[in-house]
Design a protein around this nucleic acid. Sequence first.
DNA 1: CATGAATGAGAATTCATTCAT
DNA 2: AATGAATGAATTCTCATTCAT
Lengths: 222, 222, 222, 222
Amino acid sequence: MQEQPFHETMTKTEQTAPSPFRSRGTSSKYERILQSAGQLFLQQGYERTSMSQIAHLAGVSKGSLYNHFENKAGLFTAFFEERSRTRLNTLKSVSQAPQPDLRTALRQASATIITLMIDPEAIGLYRIVVAEANEFPNLADTLWHYGVSRTLTGLAEWFAEKHAAGQLVIEDSDLAAEQFLTMSQTRIIHRTRLSLPVDTSPASIDEVASMVADSFLRMYAP
Amino acid sequence: MQEQPFHETMTKTEQTAPSPFRSRGTSSKYERILQSAGQLFLQQGYERTSMSQIAHLAGVSKGSLYNHFENKAGLFTAFFEERSRTRLNTLKSVSQAPQPDLRTALRQASATIITLMIDPEAIGLYRIVVAEANEFPNLADTLWHYGVSRTLTGLAEWFAEKHAAGQLVIEDSDLAAEQFLTMSQTRIIHRTRLSLPVDTSPASIDEVASMVADSFLRMYAP
Amino acid sequence: MQEQPFHETMTKTEQTAPSPFRSRGTSSKYERILQSAGQLFLQQGYERTSMSQIAHLAGVSKGSLYNHFENKAGLFTAFFEERSRTRLNTLKSVSQAPQPDLRTALRQASATIITLMIDPEAIGLYRIVVAEANEFPNLADTLWHYGVSRTLTGLAEWFAEKHAAGQLVIEDSDLAAEQFLTMSQTRIIHRTRLSLPVDTSPASIDEVASMVADSFLRMYAP
Amino acid sequence: MQEQPFHETMTKTEQTAPSPFRSRGTSSKYERILQSAGQLFLQQGYERTSMSQIAHLAGVSKGSLYNHFENKAGLFTAFFEERSRTRLNTLKSVSQAPQPDLRTALRQASATIITLMIDPEAIGLYRIVVAEANEFPNLADTLWHYGVSRTLTGLAEWFAEKHAAGQLVIEDSDLAAEQFLTMSQTRIIHRTRLSLPVDTSPASIDEVASMVADSFLRMYAP
DNA sequence: CATGAATGAGAATTCATTCAT
DNA sequence: AATGAATGAATTCTCATTCAT
């Protein structure tokens, strides 16, 4: 792959050493709790996860949970915040490198979006937001902030550049970004969110991505 | 509105009079339970809703619940099935009446889709499917069957006709239908599902619908 | 087998037609209930058996149970009475036929007692009496009346004859009968009542019976 | 009573002071629960005893029961094990002291067996085993292990000594022990297990014990 | 900070019994 | 007689949270 038309920021390492002085030899108790809570919340949802389960999985006592977090809801929102911040990889920016092939760049951008959004972590966080929308309305803001807005901004900037360069004719680059993101959700992302059977192979992803690129070009090519 | 380019089947009245001789207060206990369960499940989700709450709201004893449904899961799936069947209005078909203005027809179809899919009932059912995807995998099939597939089929048939008539150039009408449906979810539906603030006024809906129609025409106009 | 030193009264057929005018074509509802209740009470005990289970197994409605029996306790005692009366086979009498071999007669009597008392029906009824001794004190009387006293009387009469004939020296024939019955319970009956693993083959039964006969002869032979 | 031909191990005191520094009101919660559960299980049986009753009698909350025992069945088996171990007094050994009178020794051994086996604790445990044989098959093993086998072994050893000393002619001392134990159950034990009215006075016990001794001597005297 | 026993409210479910049809 | 829906009390068990150690 000779060109890299987009740049995905890897943030997974961010959470590796948040409190260097805490843990004895491994990770601090705070982190172990957060990690275990996350695993369970993502698998089972909020209500089905008990504080006992979390304590057990983290290898700490139930009481310790309340030394670090005010209550179950506090632990839950802390988990969600932290996961959204550190694990929600996004298409933050598209490289300004000279691109011989705009269609390929679009296709790869779409494929990246699809791949990122069907990551189990992302799907799980999406599910939690939808499931707990009534009880925890702030979750959606967090998800949007860390997960969507950066992707949209990155796309919009890139589209604006292409417009300026005359390669695309886009008046409202924010709208175009939203359309591009929405179209990328066709079939694979949508069905994955519903746990419906769907082919998520790279070939299948590329097929959808190609369709998105073609459609987008037909919509915005000069 | 001089033309009616689509036909939405209204099924909401179907459940209005299930037992014509029973007053509202004495409608069959089965239905009262199902109705109350639905209200609570949609508001609170599966786990947060207790059988006691349902019995209380339905005005029956807790034991009665188990005379009509095997257990909580059985009541839940029965509710979901019934609601999906009777309350999930869909864009089933688009009228074959001569259409002077294709763009208007597309715009109205999109607006209808948006309106139907941000209906609280539809949003609630979607949330439940996503939230309970692990515990109740069949829900998604039910939602797809009653909610999505008919819309897709209706759109695909309509597009095939337009292709035959030379008004559009569409090779894969199923794909086109999926694209049209996905694009219609831009902004309003997506944000509504996450309970994010969003303008759902008719004007706002029409704005998105117009954008969808324009984009679609640019993609498929001859 | 040239001699029949004892006579076991088969009473299993007694319950075949207790109410000839009741049933439509098969057995009457009353009998079906009693039969089903018995099956379940014997298998599961009183508390673990529900009226619903009985109604279901009998193929009648729950309400019907209360048309024929006052309540669960009434059905239970009716079942126990009927089963004890009709299914508790006992060694009622020992034949007066000339007996060339007293030891063989004793051995066969003991073997018969063992066989009768490890019958699942008898074991089940014994268990029920022991289990429900506090709640239903009358059960023991019923069991004793139909199950034990006739055996004891039969044995005592036989022993008295043998004493009169000079074949045995028995002053208290009632006590001797009780001893004979108690000794016959060695190992097999006792362990069967506790559901402990035990060999109940005819050979094993005969082994114990032989031991009983030998011991009894050493105790009472002239 | 000049001679002590048998030795009964008294274990009742073992559980009297499990936690020497705790007053009766603050004896360990685990023990209070076990004690209360035992009282109720023995009186009412497994099914009729509720966890609420146990909690109430023990003076603890319902939830506390589950901090110490996995569930009702776990509490039940724990109770049975503990009671069988600590409360099931047995005729473990018969003293080797020179015995001027073998018949008296036999009589006292039998009387001891009868007395031990009609102890309310022993009767209750026997009832529970019989009642719950299907649901809790392991109970019988426990009862046999702590209650019967030691008595049988003690008797068999004693009989073997008497055989070696020429006082009895016993080829199979294990069988003889089983016979002696079975014969001792004549009348009193058997009827007590069924809650049938029976004279359990020392005089009555001695009467049966004398009969057992006499019969045993007639069977095995040289 | 860490622990885990203790709590009491509430969860789902069962059950004997009644009663209108 | 027969039915089976309705009832409400009771059952087992879970859970978030507290607090003495």
